[in-house]
């Protein structure tokens, strides 16, 4: 497809929790500057997959290859150092601290005096104020503790955090769960901005319309396997639903154990 190795390549990733096989050999690729929507029914293994990519879990077998080099992330810190940012479904905010502290969590701006790092509050506040203003997020005071903010404002902080820090690959696990219509639209815009900078994005969502609105490619996970890997402009919501549920109406479910693109190709032919 291109001479450059893909940003992230998963090879035969599987994960067992005791006797339960959550993932049974997942292969997929994500390229830079591409939005991939990860779809699947509850319990299909999407969140497990995201946790493996973000360093929260280690795969039982299989390889993670980032930009051509095999990687093994022992912790989220290592994945983050490699340039993988994650926005989790249950928000990762410390509500007992203010907006600035949360925005910079783990990456504070410091200046050393006699070797002792000192937090540079004003510099950090300026950065946060600019980032939020650019994204059109209004929060009364950056020094209020997050516990006093609404669910939407909290999620906006998380989203602004990933837009600001970026990295190479961003994983979004149900990022718009607590957002209203307008905020969701703005969130989808944010994803576009990030992608324009050449960052790869993986978004998990339940809402088909969002997937079709923002994604270049849709990957469907079913029973711990990739049940479909299709370009958004070459498929329809109905076909994707068939892949998610394993429905055989259009023959989509048939090829799900054989390879990535066969269900999609099969579908395209039948629908044309």
């Amino acid at each position: 497809m291109s001479e450059n190795p893909p940003l992230l390549k998963l090879e035969a990733i599987s994960k067992n929790f005791g006797a339960i096989e959550a993932l049974k050999g997942v292969d997929m690729e994500i390229r830079a500057g591409e939005v991939v929507a990860l779809l699947g029914d509850n319990g299909a293994g999407k969140s497990t997959l995201v946790k493996i990519i973000s360093g929260g879990l280690r795969p039982s077998s299989g390889r993670i290859i980032m930009e051509g080099t095999p990687r093994d992330f022992a912790s989220p810190a290592e994945a983050k150092a490699a340039g993988i940012e994650t926005v989790y479904q249950d928000l990762s905010l410390c509500i007992n601290a203010d907006v600035v502290a949360n925005f910079f969590m783990g990456r504070e701006i410091t200046k050393r005096f006699f070797g002792i790092p000192i937090l540079q509050e004003r510099a950090m506040e300026a950065v946060v104020a600019k980032a939020l203003a650019d994204a059109g997020t209004r929060i009364p005071s950056l020094r209020t503790n997050v516990e006093h903010l609404s669910g939407g404002q909290r999620q906006a902080i998380e989203l602004n955090r990933f837009v600001h820090w970026g990295g190479k690959l961003v994983l979004l696990d149900e990022p718009f769960a607590a957002l209203g219509v307008e905020q969701t639209r703005r969130g989808l815009d944010m994803i576009r901005q990030v992608v324009a900078r050449g960052i790869g994005v993986v978004i998990i969502t339940h809402i088909m319309a969002q997937a079709f609105q923002v994604a270049d490619r849709i990957i469907v996970i079913r029973h711990g396997r990739v049940a479909g890997d299709v370009r958004t402009d070459e498929t329809t919501p109905e076909q994707v639903i068939d892949m998610i549920t394993g429905g055989t109406l259009s023959g989509a479910g048939k090829g799900r154990d054989q390879g990535n693109s066969s269900p999609a190709t099969g579908e395209r032919e039948s629908s044309q």
Binding site: P76, A81, S92, I95, N96, A97, A101, G106
Partner: peptide, 17 residues
């Protein structure tokens, strides 16, 4: 700062690296 953050939400600080 981290002492306060860890006391507030251990999981979040772990995820934040």
């Amino acid at each position: 700062r981290y002492v306060t953050l860890v006391g507030g939400n251990l999981e979040a600080t772990y995820r934040a690296g």
